[in-house]
Nucleic acid binder design. Structure first.
Length: 909
DNA sequence: ATCACGCATGGAT
DNA sequence: CATCCATGCGTGA
């Protein structure tokens, strides 16, 4: 394979027929260009409106003639066209004959642990009954053919595996040192036990490592989907429809070729080196490192062209083949899924290289705070380091030459230190490089090998986003909701695009890929490396911070707490915010507070009472407040001009979308994004949308990408400080968080006091009448829903509150505190600086509140779509060295900060 | 006082 | 429970 890389090529064992290759070669765009049915066994002309068949690599659907389409849809395709092809097997349960060797049939069966296959019907049945299918038949997700292939992209390749969601294993590559290997085209650094021969893979035997287990299928599929999966024909006799192509937008498309073709990739239909000795896995795994070697029984391989040796073990128990010292002696080399490379085309494009370059993605790592800290040590995942970097026996390690995406050479010290009978590998001296690439915690660095030459290449993906202008472009070019603000949710489309300074080595590449479809990686912020949106949820979420905030509508009868520290206001709700429909709050002619909501269907704006909370999908039909306007056909009361006045102008993209009365693609996508967010919340069972993390119980010290006060700082608190006027997501998040924290604390305290008081009263005054409650308003706002929103400002000037808030600091703030866990925290003993900070902050806050409240509520027309950011920013009056408090709060001061207060019945807006 | 180094710790998996 | 790894921290330059 002399062309540019075709990594992540998943081959079935056999080379496709040339004919099919040709067809596949022309798939990008040609699927529809040709007038002939895509089915190579059919030479019929397509009708004018050909029916879509299976999905091609390009993301398009194969266009079939009526006959083939009919067969396809009726699941008779294989019966008709592959009858004489090999790959037919019988269902172990019902005996039904099932074709197992082509793209069309790939979802028609599932693999059994004990070998053999099961037709999907039986698999479904058995799964329901708790069958022994080794993997949840992907097919179970498919209710219809039309959905099947859609799901390829939507759910990743587990579906493919669905035919045998046999996890693929990434076979760490034997480091071949920096010296180029003579054999430039031996391939196989990767193995994917993806398919076929599938029954030959005794899954249960092989998948011994936890993350290869079923529960990890998400990762599996996720990773799979990150390759330009090319599923070749199972059988050489198969016809061309054997190629399944991962939809590009979900694939990492590790090819630099603009028109990857099976023809080109054929040579790469190499058999993977399964890293498993032939004796393993029941001896059924063909082992081959020779490409172009047909092996009808081999497993589907995902292989990269490279000259690297392989070395991996199967199911984590592989033998090391390189003889390289394995300090741990375990021979385990399974990489954690989070390190599996998820290269995008853009990633590849970053990598300098000529047209003959072959890029072998090795691994990637999300940068931690310490990675990007001053120390300049990039912690390497042990297995990655051992797999892909030269073996080192001395802690001093050796210098490693790495090329960045600009082609710039860096030399890092690759070394390790002993740690718990193991090793901890680090790259030292990465600071200049990190800075050069303008990377920060949360960004992802990718390591690849460039062939020929074996050069180590370090690329990156920015976790967060791009400049405003770029976002504008994205707003236009992509289908997201607006992209203003820097809080876009892990939008991979922006990956690699961030650094216009040249980090994208496009210049270095002569050829450019056509605009690729967006791929996604569900990585979310901080916890991203562990928390990923399931592939099925891979809907682009492009929301600005404000938009996201706007979606988090409090129930109308819920009030927010407000806390200010060092002039930063924080508000939070006792309960999880509700993902509601963004609306526009306004005041009508009579001075009455109202809100405008846009119908999901007709996009007309409807006037509603100000205190109603709408579901994320709200339509005119749900307009119970104005029957006359409860039909989409009803006219819109709001004029465009009025609407323009109401809509936020800081975000043109969002503005246009919201303004648009007609449904256009943008709207659809925007709504899809919102819906996705809403759905996420729903899926979260009502819990607050995890801004950055979800699964963990405790906050780690520093999480990359996390915007909590802890994580926004580099480990030593030495990084750049946020300015007091900073309105970045992080700062705003911090502010919010603070406010919430304080208020919750306040509330809890007041509740406790109330309780205490009550008890005392009951004990000592049980003869008295009870209407002498000394704390009449305590807890009123929480105990009984406040039916109407009250402005924070209006209530915060409660002098009682002022007094109590300033006087009751008992300890420190645990900035990672989770409100619901507060009870578990004990009051801290060490107050010191933090105490003073808080006191100061609170005082300032209270002063401020007085000022604000006296100046009246000017926010009556603030929109929910960007409700908090602006006002909070305005209220920032005091500088806070976030880093300073952060550091201590993180670990040294885990204790409690409490405020005594009474009756915080206020709500924000 | 600062920094770099390298080990230790502990949360997460 | 073992392991990984992020990062804290002691120590010495």
């Amino acid at each position: 394979m002399k062309r540019k890389s075709l990594e992540f090529t998943y081959g079935f064992f056999e080379v496709l027929k040339k004919e099919s290759n040709n067809r596949m070669t022309s798939t990008s765009g040609a699927a529809s260009a040709s007038k002939i049915c895509f089915n190579s066994d059919c030479n019929h002309l397509k009708s004018e409106r050909p029916t879509k068949g299976w999905r091609l690599r390009t993301g398009e659907l194969a266009e079939l003639c009526d006959r083939c389409a009919s067969a396809f849809e009726e699941r008779r395709f294989c019966d008709v066209f592959h009858l004489n092809a090999s790959g037919w097997r019988n269902c172990e349960s019902c005996g039904k004959r099932v074709h197992c060797g082509c793209i069309v049939s790939v979802h028609e069966f599932t693999l059994l642990d004990a070998g053999g296959i099961e037709c999907i019907a039986c698999a479904r049945k058995n799964v329901v009954l708790g069958s022994n299918t080794s993997w949840p038949p992907s097919l179970l997700f498919h209710s219809s053919l039309s959905e099947r292939f859609k799901d390829y992209s939507a759910k990743g390749w587990s579906q493919l595996g669905g035919s045998g969601p046999v996890p693929w294993r990434q076979a760490p590559i034997l480091f071949n040192s920096l010296t180029p290997q003579p054999e430039l085209h031996s391939r196989v650094p990767y193995e994917v036990d993806l398919y076929t021969g599938m029954d030959r893979l005794n899954v249960s035997n092989r998948l011994s490592t936890p993350y290869l287990e079923m529960k990890k299928i998400d990762d599996f599929s996720e990773s799979l989907m990150n390759g330009t999966l090319k599923l070749g024909a199972h059988d050489i006799h198969e016809n061309g429809d054997a190629g399944i192509h991962c939809e590009e937008r979900h694939s990492s498309c590790l090819t630099k070729s603009q028109q990857p073709s099976l023809k080109e990739s054929n040579p790469s239909f190499v058999l993977a080196v399964p890293y498993t000795s032939p004796d393993e896995a029941n001896g059924q795994i063909g082992v081959s490192s020779t490409h172009l070697q047909p092996n009808p029984q081999s497993s589907l391989v995902k292989q990269f062209p490279s000259n690297l040796h392989n070395r991996l073990d199967s199911s984590g128990e592989t033998q090391v083949r390189d003889g390289r010292p394995r300090p741990d002696g375990r021979g385990r080399n399974q990489l954690f899924p989070r390190y599996w490379p998820r290269f995008t085309e853009q990633d590849l494009q970053q990598i300098p290289g000529d047209s003959n370059s072959v890029i072998t993605p090795l691994f990637e790592k999300m940068l931690s705070a310490s990675d990007t800290g001053r120390i300049g040590r990039l912690v390497l995942p042990k297995k990655c380091a051992e797999a892909y970097f030269p073996p080192i026996s001395q802690p001093e390690g050796l210098p490693l030459e790495v090329q960045d995406s600009k082609g710039k050479e860096w030399i890092f010290q690759f070394r390790f230190w002993p740690n718990n009978n193991s090793r901890m590998y680090v790259l030292e001296g990465v600071t200049p490089c990190i800075q050069n690439m303008q990377l920060q915690a949360g960004d992802v660095v990718t390591f690849s090998r460039l062939e020929p030459g074996g050069k180590l290449v370090m690329g990156f993906r920015k976790a967060s986003t791009a400049s405003a202008s770029e976002q504008d472009n994205e707003a236009k070019n992509s289908s997201g909701v607006s992209t203003h603000g820097d809080a876009k949710v892990a939008d991979p489309s922006s990956w690699s695009k961030v650094d216009k300074s040249g980090c994208i080595a496009k210049e270095a590449l002569g050829t450019k890929l056509a605009v690729s479809r967006k791929r996604k990686d569900g990585t979310l912020g901080s916890k991203g490396k562990h928390l990923r949106i399931d592939n099925e949820d891979l809907i682009v979420l492009k929301l600005t911070w404000e938009e996201a905030q706007g979606l988090l509508c409090p129930p109308p009868n819920h009030v927010a707490g407000v806390v200010v520290i060092e002039g930063f206001e924080f508000e939070e709700y006792e309960d999880a915010p509700v993902l509601g429909k963004p609306t526009l709050l306004a005041t009508d002619n009579l001075g009455e507070n109202i809100q405008w909501a846009q119908c999901e269907d007709c996009f007309k704006w409807r006037r509603l009472p100000s205190n109603v909370l709408l579901p994320s999908k709200w339509t005119c039909s749900s307009n119970s407040w104005d029957p006359e306007k409860s039909f989409c056909s009803a006219s819109q009361e709001l004029t465009t001009e009025q609407l323009e006045n109401l809509l936020p102008h800081c975000n043109p993209a969002a503005f246009n979308k919201m303004k648009a009365p007609k449904q256009g693609p943008e709207n659809v996508d925007a709504l899809a994004g919102l819906d996705a967010l809403a759905n996420l919340a729903i899926l979260g069972e009502g819990k607050a949308l995890p801004a950055s993390s979800q699964a963990t119980t405790k906050h780690p010290r520093h999480r990359p990408g996390c915007s909590c006060i802890v994580c926004i700082q580099p480990p030593s608190g030495k990084g750049p400080k946020h300015k007091e006027t900073c309105t970045c997501n992080v700062c705003q998040s911090v502010k919010r968080r603070f406010r919430t924290l304080m208020l919750q604390r306040e509330k809890k305290q007041s509740q406790k006091e109330e309780e205490t008081t009550r008890k005392k009263q009951q004990l000592s005054l049980h003869d008295k009448v009870l209407d002498d409650d000394p704390l009449p308003c305590t807890n009123a706002g929480y105990g009984s829903p406040n039916p109407k929103k009250v402005t924070t400002e209006g209530s915060d000037d409660d002098p009682n509150r002022v007094k109590s808030s300033t006087s009751t600091f008992k300890g420190q703030i645990d900035l990672n505190i989770q409100p619901e866990r507060e009870e578990e925290l004990s009051p801290g003993s060490d107050s010191g600086i933090t105490m003073r900070l808080l006191q100061d902050a609170t005082e300032r806050y209270l002063r401020q509140q007085c000022i604000l409240s006296s100046s009246g509520n000017s926010n009556s027309e603030v929109t929910q779509t960007q409700p908090r950011g602006g006002t909070e920013g305005e209220k920032i009056t005091t500088s806070v060295n976030l880093g300073a408090s952060n550091q201590h709060a993180d670990r040294d001061h885990p204790a409690v900060f409490s405020i005594k207060t009474s009756a915080p019945t206020s709500a924000t807006r």
